[in-house]
Structures are given as C-alpha cells and as structure tokens.
Design a binder for these strands. Structure first.
Lengths: 248, 248
DNA sequence: TACCGCCAAAGTGTGTACAATTCTTGTTGA
DNA sequence: TCAACAAGAATTGTACACACTTTGGCGGTA
C-alpha cells in the first residue's frame, strides 16, 4: 500500500524500515493487544539505536495503532470489534465523497485508462475458466486497489485520502481480506465497480456517491460473512477443504 | 481543544509545550506556507534541545500541518482553498455518522444533561438583550463545542473522533470562526441543534444523521459568507465598524 | 498480618556529539 | 557568460550518555 514516493509524513531513511516492519506486525495482529513495547529491547531487535525506534513508535501512535502513556512508553492498542465496523461505515462515507468529487471534477485520460483496464482485467480474471477460485480472489485484490485508488486520486482531496488511509489502517478492516470472500461476492462487487465508473464518467455526482457508499457497505457485509464462515469452519470440523469448496 | 487527559498519541511531557505552541502557530496561519523549519533554530527559540523539537515536528507532520522531506527536514504545508471546503464536507459526513451512532446507542444521563444545558445556555445567550453581538458570538463558541463534543462522545467511536479532529485541524476550517458569523446565522445553527438533539433523543438515527449533515454544511456556508464579508469590508472601506453593525 | 516508606532497578525523557547527506558558493573550463 | 565541478558550510540522521520518573520489592513498624 505504501510506496517510497508517497509524502507520508512518516520519518527518517533508516527508521523507515523499522516503521514499516512494526506496522506490518501490528496490522497482521502478530502483536497481542496491550503488549508493551520496550524501546531498548526493540533497538536490539532491529539493531539500531533507540532514536529511530522512538520515531517509529511515535508515528504508529499517531496512526492509532499504539497507545502512548507519558513516562511509560507505548503499548499495542486493543481494537474493539465495533471499531472495525465503524471503519467500514466511515470508509463508505469517505469513498462516497471521493466518488462524488471525482464525478464533479472529472477524470484525466490517464485515470480513465487505469480504471477501464482495471475493470477489463477484472472481467477477464473472473471469467477465466481454468483458474482456481483462490487464484482469482488474490489476483482481484490488486485490481480492486487500483480501481479505488484512481477514484480517490481523481477526487484530488488530501483529506479524503487521509481519512480512507485512517480507516484502512484499522487492523482487519482492510479490503485485503478479499482473499477470504465468497467468489459470488467478488463478482457482485466487480459489477458495482462498473456502475460506479459509469456514474462518474457521465458526471452524476449524487449517483456516484450513493453507489460507492452502497458498494463499500456491501464489502462490509461480505467481510462479515467471510469472518463468520471462517469462524464456523474453524470451530465445527477439520474438513475445511470440502466445506470451502462447496460454499464457493 | 486539547486536554492533558486526552490519549492523543502525541508525545512527551516537555515536548508537549513545544508541540502545542507550534500547532497554534500553524493553525493561526502565523507561519507562511512553504516556510522551512530549522531544527537548531527552533531549539534555540524554545530553549530545548533538538530532540523534543524533532518529536513535535514529526507529530505535526502526522497531523498534516507540516510536510516532511527526507534528509531535508520539515516545511509548512500549503493549504489550498479546496481543502478547507473539503474539510467541511468530510466533517459533515463524520459528524452525521456520530449523530446516527449516538441515536442508535443512546445518550448517557450525563451526556443528556450536558447537551441540554448547552442548549439552554445557548437560548439564554442569544436572547440576552443587554449583550453586544460580539460577546454573544464568542460566548456561543464554547457552547457549540460542548454540544458537538458530547454527541461525538455518545457515538463511542474513536475513528469518528479522529476524523473530526483531522478536519478541525485544517487551518481556517475550525468552527472557531463562529466569532465572525452573522448573528442570524448563529441563531439558525442553534435552532438546528435543538432539532438534532430531539432526533437523537427519540432514537431516529437516519433523521439525526441527515439533520447533522445539513447543519455542518450550513456552517460551511455561513463561514463562506463570513469570509466573503470580511474580504469585502477589508477591500472596500475603512468603516468596518458601521458596516458590521448594519449587517448584524 | 497489614501497612507504610524507602531503596534499587528498569525504562523513558532529554541533551549532545558525531556521521551522513544536502545545500551553497567559488572556481575553472569552454 | 554560462555550465560543470568541487570544496566548504549548513542541516538532518543516528548513537549514546545521563537525568528523571515509575515501579516493584524489601524491611520496619504498629
């Protein structure tokens, strides 16, 4: 998600590595909630001094992944389930606004090309007969990113970009979970992409906003279903392979 | 706006002062856009070492007030007018969501009391015959804050809180500008507060959300009118006092 | 036994020296 | 005159030392 050219208010050349690695750890949930992060320990772990460690921790606290306690350092913030749900609600509003602004301001030829190729690639992937479902889903993740990112870019609003980023940095609230979706859900979302693009292309701000809001909320439901399915499979039987195949 | 108890992912005891002073400078627009901030210079200015300065700068970059360039330090980010407008649009959505969530989850007796007293105080202030208009407006600022803050608290969503904070930290996009509003605008906004509170009290999420969105967008328009009026007065004549009185 | 205060250990907050990078400026050559 | 280059200055990036705060344990006292 993060690129080197992104002016991200992050920090320093060397700290960059530390920051990215720590953030990945947190987003993947590999660090338990309420775990306290010792600066000296981390500095040995990453083989740097405390200075870049502190910089990274401060940035992560600013992103809401860590909690800061004066004179007592940082600890992993516990994310309540409600916050993950809220992240989808908020993102629906923010990306809806992005779609509206994009429809108002119009697309550059480049953005238009990017989006159309993303849509076409999506069509191909979802219709490819030889591919396995898992391959289709994981390949679709990148396509999905490209579609949404180009619309956000077209909105030309830093604030919208920041808010979406804030929502995506809530652990487990990212669309990367698409790999666990039902394939029918992925198809449905892709169809919605087409409709949203049309609305933006035809300069219908209200329609684009409404469609995008519904789209993201649809993703929320699909994610909830995916989580419920995974929980069910984990808890009920060891034959997850058969169940996954039947339901997909 | 910031209190000591707020877990704000900011930073360190001593840096706190530096951070707050620098932020105030930036929000008031007292530092020109693209000004580069020299760490050594600032450390002499505030009579601390570079360490707390760096911490403050990093936090401010995270808040979007500064821009970070690797190996080249921080500079004041230029805020385009469109971003101020976007901040109101985004805040309308976020506070709308807050109102909806508050209506869904309900108010605590304490929040109910806070809001009702804010509404009553507002009624008193706006109806007080002896007060000057300027006094009324500045006194209303705190009331306004209290109303909105309690609704956000009732939403119990960290993300909503963060997004609103992000919007309010866009220079010139804060409701503190209320001191420049037409007094009739302030009266209108106050009336909307009453309606919003009713909707939340009667547990009407959709209605609360719609009313709050319209309310904040109304504030946007009022702010735009206020800015236009100030520009007009500044550019047209020196008799600002008489004009302000006539229009108010 | 329960409670209080003191002390030591651990860990964070700050200052500062030094390394690495970027910017400035003066010089040289065409 | 201008461009390219190089040396020096300025500025940021990192490491590390030390001061302050917090915390947990220990012993003494009621």
């Amino acid at each position: 998600m993060r690129t080197a050219t992104e002016t991200d208010a992050s920090d320093l050349p060397r700290s960059q590595t530390v920051l990215d690695m720590l953030r990945a750890l947190l987003l993947d949930g590999r660090l338990a909630a309420d775990t306290r992060l010792n600066e000296v320990h981390l500095s040995h772990e990453f083989d740097v001094s405390r200075t870049p460690i502190r910089a990274a921790l401060q940035t992560l606290a600013g992103e809401g992944l860590l909690e800061y306690l004066p004179n007592r350092g940082y600890k992993v913030r516990a994310i309540p389930l409600s916050e993950i749900v809220d992240a989808y609600e908020m993102r629906a509003l923010a990306e809806g606004l992005a779609a509206r602004l994009a429809a108002e301001r119009g697309l550059t030829p480049l953005q238009q090309g990017e989006i159309e190729s993303a849509l076409a690639l999506g069509d191909d992937i979802l219709n490819a007969p030889g591919e396995t479902l898992d391959n289709q889903r994981s390949a679709y993740g990148a396509i999905n990113d490209r579609f949404h990112r180009n619309i956000r870019d077209a909105a030309e609003s830093r604030l919208v970009r920041d808010v979406v980023q804030l929502c995506q940095r809530v652990p487990h609230a990212s669309a990367h979970n698409i790999v666990a979706f039902e394939i029918d859900d992925v198809r449905k979302r892709h169809g919605e992409h087409h409709k949203i693009y049309e609305a933006i292309l035809f300069r219908e701000p209200k329609k684009a906003e409404a469609l995008m809001q519904a789209h993201v909320l649809g993703v929320k439901s699909a994610a909830a279903r995916a989580v419920a399915r995974l929980e069910f499979e984990k808890g009920s039987s060891v034959q997850t392979g058969r169940q996954r195949q039947r339901r997909a």
